[in-house]
Amino acid sequence: MKKRIESVDILRGFTIAAMILVNTPGSWSYVYPPLLHAKWHGLTPTDLIFPFFLFIVGISIYFAYKNKPNAQATYKKIIVRSLKLIGLGLFLGLFLPSAPFVKEFETLRFLGVLQRIGIVFLFSAILYLNCNWKTLFGIGTIILIVYWLCLGYVPLPDGTLPTFDRSPNNWAMYIDSNLLGKHMWQADYDPEGLLSTLPAIATCIIGVLVGKLLDGLRDIKPLLVVAVLLLLSGYIWNVWFPISKALWSSSFVLVTAGWGTLILACIYYLTDVKQLKFGSIYKYVGMNAITIYFLSSFVSKTFYLTKVGDTNVHAWLYNTLFVHDFLSDKLSSLMYALTVVLAYMFLGYFLYKKKIFIKV
């Protein structure tokens, strides 16, 4: 691609900024509801963030590999990049800021955000290299339908009927509990679990198809039509398969991809069609998205685990600089998160101006 699509970089950077915002409140006891995930079923603005990123990964796959040969060297680069992402995720899980500097393997969480990005990227990129858009559309559709039927209608090994609720009778939770054991986010489920990675691949495939639609696009009407179709189908499917990020339900895939397409269409119209200077700061972050996300996660974990007297660095900074009588607890917590976001946005700006682009 000779010219980058501004709107894609802006949406990617905005998504990373939003990830950092919801991941680093001053106190988890004081967070405004829109900045929290839905407890199980339902959809909050926070629930849109991760699927938006996978959706953008799909768009990037289209433009990155549309002229690449279906050859061994291309597959090697895809596999290496995927392993790097998985490795970074495992490093974050293992790392401790003090001796012995490595967490006990018995309690290591195998899966996570970066691991899911790596796995989804691997399968989506390989599918793209080997399938035309019609086949990709069919594969994505089959994944969503089979996932729904499996979770909703296939009896578990003990003969009990499955459920979409948070219970041992949920197929996604059943598989994770039996295969991952203690290596999960929580004792009974993992939001980036094994089975729910399948519909996450469908999210990425939708991104690939939207990327094809974007290629040479001069009018946002096709994007708006796709967005409306995705939203309608997702909200209708919600009647039978509830929207749930925890399960990455099929309705969740369609609704989040619909919102992603709609927001992308709006940004595309302003930046790529009307050529308005809009959201450049997010573009700077988007050019080093994985680097900034990884660094924010690394620093946040270090702050939480590094002691300062009877507390830790995170709590000390929050209580010293942001907790005041004239601010509510939730506003203080939000101010801390916004300060962290601004710091990483400045880092993105600095890296961009220095022409430093770290590819993972």
Rank of each mutant, 00 (worst) to 15 (best):
F303K: 00
V313C: 08
L161M: 15
I61G: 04
S177N: 13
L247P: 03
M345I: 15
D219W: 02
W240T: 10
K39D: 15
M19P: 01
M287G: 04
S167P: 05
L108C: 09
F298E: 09
G211I: 11
L83F: 11
L36I: 05
P242Y: 05
I236Y: 12
K354C: 14
G181D: 07
M173S: 14
N170E: 13
V57H: 03
W185T: 11
V360G: 08
R116W: 11
N312F: 12
F52H: 02
T306D: 11
K283Y: 02
G13M: 07
L108Y: 00
Q115W: 02
I126V: 15
V22M: 13
V360A: 12
F63E: 10
I356N: 03
D325W: 01
Q275I: 01
I10V: 15
I117S: 06
D165V: 05
F53S: 06
K277N: 15
Y30Q: 08
W171F: 06
L232Q: 06
Y269V: 09
I263P: 01
V340E: 01
L351I: 04
G234F: 02
I145A: 13
G138D: 09
D325Y: 11
P45C: 04
Q186W: 11
I59E: 06
E106M: 00
P51H: 02
G181T: 10
L136W: 10
F121N: 00
I56Y: 08
S177I: 00
I201T: 12
T261P: 08
N67D: 15
T107G: 00
T160D: 08
F121D: 03
A18T: 01
T163A: 09
P191E: 12
K355F: 02
L254P: 02
L111E: 01
K3F: 05
D272T: 07
N288Y: 13
F137H: 06
N70C: 07
A187R: 12
P162E: 08
M335K: 02
G309C: 06
F137N: 14
P199F: 05
P45K: 06
I79P: 09
E6R: 15
L83N: 01
A337C: 01
K182T: 14
L214A: 09
P51K: 01
